[in-house]
Simulated scan of single mutants.
Amino acid sequence: MCKQMDKLVIGGIELDSRLFIGTGKFPNKKVIPNVIKSSKAKVITMALRRVDLNSKEENILDYIPKDCILLPNTSGARNAEEAVRIARLAKAMGCGNWIKIEVISDNKYLLPDNFETIKATEILAKEGFIVLPYMSPDLMAAKSLVSAGAAAVMPLGAPIGTNKGLQTRELIRILIDEIDLPIIVDAGIGKPSHAAEAMEIGAAAVLVNTAIATAGDPVKMGKAFSLSVKAGRMAYISKFGPEKNYAQASSPLTGFLNM
């Protein structure tokens, strides 16, 4: 597949970066513009509760370049009704019509409620939102999200903030194989190698927050993730050589003695 044909399009918009990043957990918000620049991310997610239009100093929007796509999330919503309310508020505040649905009532593992997520997705998609739902990787739930009007599906790789990588790899692979929407791996990616692995199995993109924000050097880590995402995608579209159960020499082992 040539580079020109390998496009990521969500909500009618072609994206030139497959790395989405978050804005939470940074020790200093002033580093966020440099992280966005080094990571080359164009889709930036943020919790609406962190937006304070009355306080310039605390307004997270001041740290996000105007050429980026805002992806407000419904963090804090415990059911579909609350998620819908937060999404509508984000749009009314001028954050655009992209929304990441997070519906979480589990306070220990912070696992998403797929049932409530599907309900919120259907309501908001009908209202014209570009809905990217965060979900536990389940094929039937993903199919329901497609029917509900999701623009992409965002399965977790591991519980939020754990940095454990693709603990749900096989379930994500099934979604990639069966769902005709971009699959964006969200949550749990802790290292650039995890991001590359997600891209190598065919993910359309990854969303990374904790691993970059809590790194010793978030700016350099942002660049590292950018490179790993590009490498993983390039490897995927190049198609891997077959795996074998037995050794096979790269060069002939016989014939050179008779020269």
Rank of each mutant, 00 (worst) to 15 (best):
M1Y: 09
C2L: 13
K3C: 05
M5I: 01
D6H: 14
K7F: 03
V9S: 10
I10L: 10
G12Y: 08
D16P: 00
S17W: 09
R18V: 00
F20H: 05
F20I: 08
I21M: 13
T23C: 13
P27Q: 13
K30A: 15
K30E: 15
V31N: 06
I32G: 06
K37Y: 10
S39Y: 14
K40W: 03
A41L: 10
A41V: 05
K42W: 07
V43A: 12
I44E: 05
T45D: 15
T45G: 13
M46C: 13
A47C: 12
N54K: 15
N54P: 02
I60K: 06
L61H: 11
Y63T: 01
P65Q: 06
P65W: 08
D67M: 04
C68T: 12
C68Y: 05
C68W: 04
L71Q: 07
P72K: 09
P72Q: 10
N73R: 09
A77Q: 06
A80L: 10
A80F: 12
E81H: 08
L89M: 11
A92I: 03
C95A: 10
W98V: 01
W98R: 02
I104Y: 10
S105P: 02
P112C: 08
K119L: 13
I123H: 08
I123F: 10
I123R: 11
L132I: 15
Y134D: 14
S136H: 11
S136D: 03
L139D: 06
L139Q: 07
L139N: 04
A142I: 00
L145W: 05
L145F: 07
L145P: 00
V146G: 04
V146F: 10
G149Q: 03
M154E: 07
M154S: 03
P159C: 13
I160H: 13
G161Y: 03
T162V: 06
N163P: 00
L171M: 15
I172H: 01
I176H: 03
E178C: 05
P182M: 01
I183L: 01
I183H: 03
I184R: 02
V185T: 12
D186P: 04
A187K: 01
G190M: 05
K191C: 00
P192S: 08
H194P: 07
A195C: 08
A196V: 00
M199N: 01
E200T: 05
A205N: 03
V206M: 05
N209C: 15
A211N: 04
A215H: 13
G216P: 02
D217K: 11
K220T: 07
G222A: 09
F225Q: 02
S226Y: 14
G232S: 04
G232V: 00
K239H: 10
K239T: 11
K239M: 11
G241V: 01
P242V: 03
E243V: 12
N245T: 13
Y246T: 11
Q248G: 05
S250P: 00
P252H: 11
T254P: 00
L257N: 10
